[in-house]
Design a protein around this nucleic acid. Structure first.
Length: 286
DNA sequence: ATCCAGATTA
DNA sequence: TAATCAGGAT
């Protein structure tokens, strides 16, 4: 199986990208997708707002975690205006459980600017979207391609894996710029939306199949710091505290806390010892 | 332990 | 470039 990948990569390294290679590559991806497509609610809709929400949630978050949150969110806040007009506290509450909470904050403010500056319509130009805080190169283009079926060129973790495996089989420290060039040359512009679904699904299959993960050969690969004992963990606890006990809201958390952090840490530890979080979590999860 | 349909900031 | 990000799944 990976014998083919080695050959394929060697051919690319030796002769560059021929039309024939592009066709073979596209055939592999489409063949797999036609028999093993993953199904998600955000793949069925064409509502740009729904795509917008899903892309924010899918940043660094597993698809299976996003599904229920996505459904709940678009059900309670069905339009850009609804999101723009809902309080930040309420939006963060709806977000709870997804993590990387600042996405929720930026997402709401993005909705406000789309209502204000784009008449409530998701822009079709990735460069416009990328100017919004929290929307980077990949998310901007995913939104445009998935909402409007417009061909763009982007890379994310699953796509990166596909190209590392098939085009850079025995190369280390591969840079994204090099991969992006290939993504652009091989994208199927007859149906870019489905093409990228297929590409990502193939990448997920490779992750389940290959050991070690080819992404470790990326120049940009890095291990994540521990969550346990981090400020992130602490902030999460305080968020739950604020949500479950509004009367304790005097504790405001600045984004850059240093010395207050220790005080809050003491407080949280004390409350943990008293079993505060267990009690409050039970009362809110019902 | 490591990653997840990343992005920002220093 | 490296560190961080109001989590959770595998």
């Amino acid at each position: 199986m990976s014998l083919f990948a080695a050959d394929f990569s060697q051919s690319y390294e030796k002769n560059g990208l021929s039309q024939e290679m592009i066709q073979i590559f596209q055939q592999i991806i489409w063949d797999y997708y036609n028999s093993h497509p993953r199904e998600f609610p955000w793949r069925v809709t064409r509502n740009p707002y729904h795509i917008f929400i899903s892309e924010w949630m899918l940043q660094q978050t597993q698809t299976s975690s996003v599904v229920p949150k996505y459904k709940e969110f678009i059900s309670k806040l069905p339009t850009f205006s609804d999101l723009a007009n809902t309080s930040m506290d309420e939006v963060v509450k709806l977000w709870q459980g997804l993590g990387y909470n600042r996405r929720a904050i930026w997402m709401k403010s993005a909705a406000e600017s789309i209502v204000r500056e784009y008449n409530g319509t998701l822009p079709k130009d990735p460069d416009h979207l990328e100017k919004i805080k929290g929307i980077g190169h990949a998310t901007a283009r995913e939104m445009v391609t998935f909402a409007y079926n417009i061909p763009t060129v982007f890379i994310e973790t699953n796509i990166r894996r596909v190209f590392l495996h098939l085009f850079f089989h025995n190369k280390n420290q591969v840079k994204d710029t090099e991969i992006l060039s290939l993504v652009g040359q091989t994208v199927d512009i007859t149906n870019p939306r489905e093409w990228y679904y297929a590409l990502m699904d193939y990448g997920v299959m490779l992750k389940k199949t290959l050991q070690p993960d080819p992404n470790r050969r990326s120049y940009h690969y890095k291990k994540q710091p521990k969550f346990e004992g981090s400020n992130r963990e602490l902030r999460g606890k305080i968020l739950r505290l604020k949500i479950t006990n509004p009367e304790i809201t005097n504790i405001t958390i600045s984004q850059k806390l240093k010395s207050p952090l220790e005080k809050i840490n003491e407080l949280v530890t004390k409350m943990e010892e008293e079993g505060f979080f267990e009690k409050s979590l039970k009362t809110t999860s019902e």
